[in-house]
Design a protein around this nucleic acid. Structure first.
Lengths: 218, 218
DNA sequence: TAAATATTTTAGATTAGCCTAAAAAAAAAT
DNA sequence: ATTTTTTTTTAGGCTAATCTAAAATATTTA
């Protein structure tokens, strides 16, 4: 059985390793969890004892099979709760992360099964990220960044690379939301900004910095 | 800000004091929370420092106004989540307590407001207990125990004094549920057991011990 | 490749919440 | 009104998760 805190470490390691592909450094973990590197070292020893990470001192960590499975279950819970908060409780997508951070740690064999059923077995969370199934499997997103889309390219907003409240609020303001239909109208070479049409109506000009963080289908 | 554990202490004190009416002893608290009296003494000092209880050594405790307000908010959250679990996720009423014990500690100003709205502002939880409003006010139950009901008395099952899974499972077995219509057919003087009719159909004989724990309207 | 810098770990404290054992206070019994 | 019993508190320790400061290791730079 893992504690609340141990679960957060596993989740952080999973995300930092890009779905369990690379090694993760102590400093990187300490940064995302806002703890000191010394605290991370302590915890890594504990997690290695519990066989959820592979840990060689001074060499970074990777998740074991068991650890990856645990991490994916937490991510599954997080994303299902986010769907609940947005679809059922009518929260905006920029308001749900913090609450889901708490809800993801609720322990119950049946709760998530029932929640999944209640929500109609959703495949994606409100930010477009795929929801792992009970076995930890998920369909990776086939998405390209808006900044890489060619002129005339049309697609559906499926996800974001950046999810800070400030960014989400900006998107709301220019009427970009998950599921919105966007079309690249023009690319301004001068500053790499992009002119887009949203839902066949309004057009907006977004900076390359913003476009990089918007993911669309195909 | 109260910790998870501090919240559980306040809730325990509230229930043990019968809605904040009597003093509560250290031993009583230690029993319901399954901790040692020494641990309770430690915590009571801490809670007194936070001005949520009135505490005089060796004399038991009462909740302050602030403490009572906190306790009622936790109870509100607990009961709203129980309604969610039974009404929306289709759990049985004997399965929800443990999960609600975890959910009641989720911190969010808006979450409970939205949940309340989503559930249609319910007045009672699945066990028939009233749900406090945002100000901690609740309508006390006007209920009598089935063991005190006179012969021929008819009523609706509105609540239970005992909510252990074993008891709830027994009730399910004899088809007594919240909202069931019950009628006292006969009272057996020999052992104080009661013959009841349920929903106008089946009759069952319940012991006085069982009848004492079933609350009906009027 | 040796020195400088950056990263990571260890050592030793701290806080929350719990424990056992012993002391102190209150309540009950003789 | 003592003595006995019960209840409650204090004293001293433990574990989980954190911290700071110092030591050890790895990496980068000259």
């Amino acid at each position: 059985m893992l504690t609340f805190t141990e679960e957060n470490y596993l989740k952080a390691i999973y995300h930092l390793s890009d779905h369990g592909r690379n090694d993760v450094s102590t400093n990187a973990i300490s940064e995302v969890l806002k703890t000191k590197p010394a605290s991370v070292s302590d915890m890594l020893r504990k997690l290695a004892d519990k066989n959820v990470i592979n840990y060689i001192k001074y060499q970074g960590v990777t998740l074991t099979h068991k650890g990856k499975k645990e991490a994916l279950q937490i991510i599954r819970k997080h994303r299902l709760w986010e769907v609940f908060l947005v679809e059922k409780l009518k929260f905006n997508w920029d308001e749900v992360h913090e609450i889901a951070e708490q809800l993801e740690h609720i322990q119950s064999k049946f709760l998530i099964k029932r929640l999944d059923e209640f929500l109609g077995y959703p495949q994606h969370d409100p930010h477009g990220d795929p929801i792992p199934n009970e076995n930890g499997e998920m369909i990776p997103k086939k998405q390209i960044s808006l900044s890489e889309a060619p002129v005339q390219k049309q697609g559906i907003v499926m996800g974001l690379k950046e999810t800070s409240p400030l960014f989400l609020q900006y998107l709301d303001k220019i009427n970009i939301y998950l599921g919105a239909k966007v079309k690249v109208v023009d690319r301004i070479e001068f500053d790499s900004s992009i002119e887009i049409q949203i839902d066949g109506k309004k057009t907006a000009i977004v900076s390359n910095e913003v476009a990089k963080n918007i993911l669309i289908t195909e």
